[in-house]
Amino acid sequence: MNTKIATFKNILKLQSFPYHLVDQSPWPILLSFSLLNLTVGAVSYMHGYPYGGWTLLVGFVLTVWGMILWFKDVVVEAAYLGHHTKQVQNGIMLGFILFVISEVFAFFSVFWAYFHSSLSPTIELGGIWPPIGILPLDPLAIPLLNTFLLLSSGAFVTYAHHSLIGGKRKLAIEGLIFTVILAIIFTALQYFEYSEASFTFADGVFGSTFYASTGLHGLHVMIGTIFLLVALIRIINYQFSRKHAMGLETSILYWHFVDVVWLFLFISVYFWSAT
Rank of each mutant, 00 (worst) to 15 (best):
K13H: 06
S16R: 11
S16W: 01
P18E: 08
P18C: 04
Y19T: 14
L21H: 12
P26K: 03
L30T: 08
L30I: 12
G41Y: 06
M46W: 09
P50V: 09
Y51W: 12
W54N: 10
T55N: 11
L57P: 02
F60Y: 10
T63W: 05
V64P: 10
I68F: 10
I68E: 09
L69T: 07
K72T: 12
D73T: 13
V75Y: 12
H84T: 01
Q87A: 08
Q89E: 15
I97Y: 07
L98I: 06
V100G: 04
V100P: 03
V104W: 12
S118N: 02
S120P: 00
I128C: 07
P130F: 11
P131A: 01
L135N: 13
P136R: 01
A141Y: 08
S153K: 13
K170D: 12
E174M: 12
I177C: 01
L182M: 05
F186P: 14
Y191S: 09
E193I: 03
S195T: 15
S195K: 13
S198C: 03
G207C: 06
G207I: 04
T209K: 05
S213V: 09
G215F: 08
H217L: 00
V221D: 15
G224E: 00
T225H: 06
L229F: 12
L232P: 00
R234N: 06
S241K: 03
H244Y: 02
A245L: 09
G247Q: 11
T250L: 11
I252F: 11
I252P: 06
F257W: 10
V258N: 06
D259C: 15
V260Y: 09
L263I: 14
F264R: 09
F266L: 14
